[in-house]
């Protein structure tokens, strides 16, 4: 159970595949236009319920409750060894490899 007032993320479908714009490429036309937005939950609900939230601009938005206290997952990724090679290479090209 997620409590009223909790900070949550919801999801909904803005346009179903058959409602999409005519100029959209074929692969995109096969899938719906989806939307995600965050806000405060207006009433107690469970994950998966259709709910109403109040966003930061005081707007009401409706959708399926995805998560409470949504967090960012982005980071610096996995090590890319090529970047170290670039760094060593440009240093050597300008200042000489052996002096590095």
């Amino acid at each position: 159970m997620v409590k009223k007032g909790a900070w949550v993320r919801i999801h909904n479908v803005v346009l179903t595949p058959d409602q999409r714009a005519s100029q959209v490429p074929d692969d995109t036309k096969k899938v719906p236009l989806e939307m995600w937005v965050k806000g405060r939950l207006m009433d107690d609900a469970d994950i998966g319920d259709t709910v109403i939230i109040r966003t930061r601009t005081n707007r009401e938005a409706k959708g399926v409750l995805l998560e409470e206290n949504p967090h960012y997952w982005h980071n610096f990724g996995k090590f890319v060894p090529e970047l170290l090679k670039v760094s060593e290479q440009v240093w050597a090209a300008l200042f000489g490899g052996d002096q590095a």
Binding site: V14, T28, L33, N75
Partner: peptide, 30 residues
């Protein structure tokens, strides 16, 4: 893209409401 997620984070850090959509030119419609 991690770059776009980071921009969403920064916008939210600065107090914005961020509406995220899937791919398509109908963003303008929204």
């Amino acid at each position: 893209q991690p770059e776009i997620i980071e921009k969403a984070r920064k916008c939210e850090a600065l107090g914005a409401e961020v509406v995220q959509l899937s791919v398509g030119p109908e963003l303008f419609y929204s």
